[in-house]
């Protein structure tokens, strides 16, 4: 059976042969189409690097990266990515930032001029969904860190990508907003069914959202453990305090502390 995403035994090194930093070594990850996968691991273990390799932003030194049946040599249009930092363009308003992918990715690119109103409504809906209604015309520096992150999440979603790569998209948010956005994310995934790969530090978040959680080792990163989360959907916040839920987070916690200790 071939997977939608296949990372096979990849090694990625920043810098030269002997002086560089080996960020990933022998990392393997397989994700089926429509699956929601979370990646957790100690800080600096190479999670963001894994996402860069996966999206084709950074070439791997060894191993193969295959997305949608083709080897990834350069970034793909079917991918939507939210980076660890919001990385909004400072000269664009929030709305224009969210609409940026539409100016690049086909078929939207060709349709944008004539269907501007329709696309703008879509962007406004998304912003409203993450609680940013009324901030469309504000510039990024007029938003708080968490608001910028939410805007960048909208930017990742606007062109309805088949593969969503999210690098700690809720990292800078308070717990209440974060939990609210988990719900939003789950609804979105259940209706549109994109393939999602989510990096997070929050084990509750990982277990709430994902079908499967992968634990990475300390740098150089590779996958050391995978845990299938077979809780029924839609999952609820109350559910995160049940015994079956906490058993899973507890198990993951132990694997991560092992990974940290091994470093």
């Amino acid at each position: 059976m071939s997977h939608f995403v296949e990372l096979d035994n990849i090694t990625l090194r920043y810098g030269g042969e002997d002086t560089g930093t080996v960020a990933l070594e022998g990392a393997t990850l397989r994700v089926a189409r429509g699956e929601f996968v979370a990646v957790v691991g100690p800080s600096g273990c190479g999670k963001s690097t894994l996402m860069k390799a996966l999206s084709g932003l950074w070439p791997v030194n060894a191993g193969t990266v295959i997305v949608a049946g083709r080897e990834v040599a350069r970034p793909l249009e079917i991918v939507g990515m939210a980076f660890q930092n919001a990385t909004l363009l400072p000269w664009r308003t929030t709305l224009d930032n969210v609409m940026l992918p539409l100016e690049i990715v086909q078929p939207h690119r060709g349709r944008l001029r004539r269907h501007r109103a329709e696309y703008e409504a879509r962007a406004r809906d998304l912003l409203k969904l993450v609680g940013l209604a009324g901030f469309e015309q504000k510039f990024p520096w007029q938003l708080s860190g968490g608001m910028q992150q939410r805007a960048s999440l909208c930017r990742a979603l606007i062109h309805e990508p088949e593969l969503l790569i999210l690098d700690e998209p809720f990292g800078a948010l308070d717990m209440f907003t974060r939990e609210e956005l988990w719900g939003v994310m789950q609804d979105l995934w259940m209706t549109k069914r994109p393939t999602v790969i989510l990096v997070t530090h929050d084990l509750r978040e990982a277990v709430y959202l994902a079908d499967r959680v992968h634990v990475m080792s300390a740098r150089p990163g590779r996958m050391v453990h995978a845990r299938t989360v077979d809780l029924a959907r839609p999952r609820t916040l109350e559910g995160t305090y049940t015994a079956s839920f906490t058993a899973i987070t507890q198990e993951l916690r132990e694997h991560i502390s092992h990974a940290r200790a091994a470093a």
Binding site: K52, S55, L57, R74, P75, L76, E77, V79, M81, F83, N85, T87, L89, W91, L100, P101, E103, I104, V105, H159
Partner: peptide, 27 residues
């Protein structure tokens, strides 16, 4: 590089990157 990556991740061509990030940034 982070701002350039935003565009690159969308599969943007070199010309798009210059037009949408390089030029505004250089203004």
């Amino acid at each position: 590089p982070e701002l350039r990556d935003v565009l690159r991740a969308l599969g943007a061509r070199r010309r798009d990157i210059i037009l949408k990030v390089g030029l505004p940034r250089a203004m």
